[in-house]
Design a protein around this nucleic acid. Structure first.
Lengths: 148, 148
DNA sequence: ACACCTTGTTCATTCGCCCGAAACGTGGGT
DNA sequence: ACCCACGTTTCGGGCGAATGAACAAGGTGT
């Protein structure tokens, strides 16, 4: 929880322990107070990164919208969400989409492609980690940095 | 890179965009200045986790971003991380990248070059220690004080 | 019965990355 | 001046992934 400490004149400045703490010396102009509160709110929002959610009916919600997913793609989505922001191996995904592994060598690729198209409108992106797996993240500026 | 903005009296307070930015109104007591710089340093240390991390899928995380590494470069990276901040010999690197040593005369050079380019965007740098080996470290962040 | 849509699957082709090799540039040390 | 260590660019083969097309099966509404 973000905190703004009000420090009396004459007292030594405190030593904040994390990003959600700040302090000002009282008395303080209204404008400065507002600015620091706004900064704390912004930091707080950045820290609590929102995660997409998938309900039992295969509906994904993220940001302001939602999409529904067919069974196979819902299974893939669930596996990707369990490791949101980290790599999920192709084999793990195959098991998540089909109880006994993907039926064909290429089935997974095709369903990942379709899943990509569906969740793209929500601002979600599935990154490929070549020969290792896939990674789900928000389509945010500069999480992953790529050469131009 | 952490920043402490010095704001003239009469100017409106700035709106920091992230956790590594703070501001004070000049003139400012020495003590308050020190306190805010110390807080920034602490946050910076918390944020850019002191050392980079490499997971089993070849993904390197450092600061706010990540990149994925192909197998050979992941091997090199692992060796460099095991001795983070210290020199790793070329022979040790060759063994880390290939089970039976580097295949060609300058294969290691090329892969070090490619690794450099990949991790450069994360703020990581591989320094050459001539005829000894290589050394991995963070792009040294210096405190920047700017007039606003 | 029929047209139409969605879903799951397979196939064929294209795309782009990873890697090794070769050739050349550069700068330091002796 | 010369050698040596390393940096950088370029090329092609191999291969995993992306993509588009096609098709079967099942559902739905007319």
């Amino acid at each position: 929880m973000p905190r703004l400490l009000l420090v009396e004149d004459g007292q030594p400045p405190p030593q904040p322990g994390d990003c959600l703490e700040d302090w000002v010396r009282v008395p303080v102009p209204e404008l400065e107070m507002r600015a620091r509160v706004a900064a704390l709110e912004l930091r707080s929002a950045q820290h609590a990164s929102a995660r997409p959610e998938l309900d039992e009916f295969g509906v994904v919600r993220f940001g302001s919208g939602w999409v529904s997913l067919p069974p196979v793609e819902a299974g893939l989505m669930r596996a990707l969400l369990d490791r949101y922001g980290a790599v999920v191996g192709r084999d793990a995904l195959s098991r998540a989409g089909w109880a006994d592994g993907a039926p064909g060598r290429n089935a997974l690729d095709v369903h990942v492609l379709r899943l990509r198209r569906r969740i793209g409108v929500l601002g979600l992106v599935i990154r490929t980690v070549r020969s290792r797996g896939y990674l789900l993240e928000a389509d945010e500026p500069r999480h992953q940095v790529r050469e131009a």
